[in-house]
């Protein structure tokens, strides 16, 4: 809506429903001899919410970065909207990225800006002729979605962890992406807000057809959000299924994720 180039990009890769939103094939990535991803395969379909769980340090955030081209995998390929991102030039990659929203684990808010400027930043950068009133309305809309309409004039460096997370979410939503990558959207939030955010993710999928890949350690969130859950272990996806299927799993290492009795 606010971004002119977006329309072209849509034309480019067609509207075909068969192409998955994101796909990873045989991804490998290691850091100084430590193998983090080891032949990982993953597919996120259209209008699907896939939740990714796995132990801390398993390589979930690394996988996200490989998917959007922030990190180059040692081998294997990542596709977004049916395009192999390693084969794209900078301009085409940026066009694809316009349709992808990325919520960072640490929110990654721009410290030198206020909350409002943070959210308006991608809008202003992508459409230089945008009117101030439009920016203001768009900012207000997403802030209300994440439940922080009063924070608009605060400096982002003075927010609490949970607020930063939500502002980060608002900043990615403001450009209306078609595919979202959420890195722990509910971490650091109280149970009530966590539930609201989980429901927001669900609602975005159902109403705006935004499919997503969600990393979470919060099983309540996983239950609300997921169509399918994938479990990452030792560098690849070792189990996959709906929440109910995995919940009923007898595997020694899948079980603890769903065990809330301790």
């Amino acid at each position: 809506m606010f971004i002119e180039e977006k329309i072209d990009a849509k034309k480019d890769h067609g509207e075909s429903n068969q192409v998955p939103m994101a796909e990873a094939r045989e991804l490998c990535k290691s850091f100084d001899g430590q193998q983090v991803l080891n032949g990982l395969n993953l597919q996120v379909g259209r209008e699907e919410n896939l939740v990714l769980i796995g132990k801390s340090g398993a390589g979930k955030s690394v996988l996200f970065k490989c998917l959007v081209g922030l990190m180059r995998p040692d081998s294997g390929k990542a596709w977004l909207f049916g395009k192999d991102i390693s084969s794209l030039n900078y301009k085409d990659l940026n066009r694809i990225r316009l349709q992808v929203g990325f919520l960072f684990q640490g929110a990654a808010l721009y410290d030198s800006m206020t909350v409002g400027e943070n959210i308006a930043f991608p809008l202003r950068q992508h459409n230089r002729r945008i009117r101030e009133s439009e920016v203001k309305d768009a900012v207000q809309e997403v802030l209300e979605q994440v439940g922080l309409p009063e924070a608009v004039n605060r400096m982002s460096s003075e927010l609490s962890g949970g607020m930063r997370k939500r502002i980060g979410l608002a900043r990615t939503l403001v450009t209306h992406p078609e595919f979202m990558l959420y890195d722990e959207p509910t971490t650091g939030l109280d149970a009530v807000t966590a539930r609201e955010i989980s429901e927001l993710i669900r609602q975005l999928q159902q109403e705006k057809k935004i499919s997503s890949l969600v990393i979470t350690h919060d099983m309540a969130c996983a239950r609300i959000v997921s169509d399918r859950i994938a479990v990452l272990k030792e560098g690849s996806i070792r189990a996959e299924g709906t929440y109910e299927q995995l919940h009923a799993s007898e595997d020694d290492w899948v079980k603890p994720f769903f065990d809330t009795s301790f």
Binding site: K65, V68, L70, N94, R95, R97, L98, V100, F102, F104, G106, A108, L109, Y110, D111, S112, F121, P122, Q125, H126, T172, T175
Partner: peptide
Amino acid sequence: ELGSMRVTEQIDAMEVSSI
């Protein structure tokens, strides 16, 4: 300034939003 933007992934955040 740029170092802390790099460390807190603010530079990556610009990159993924096509800026």
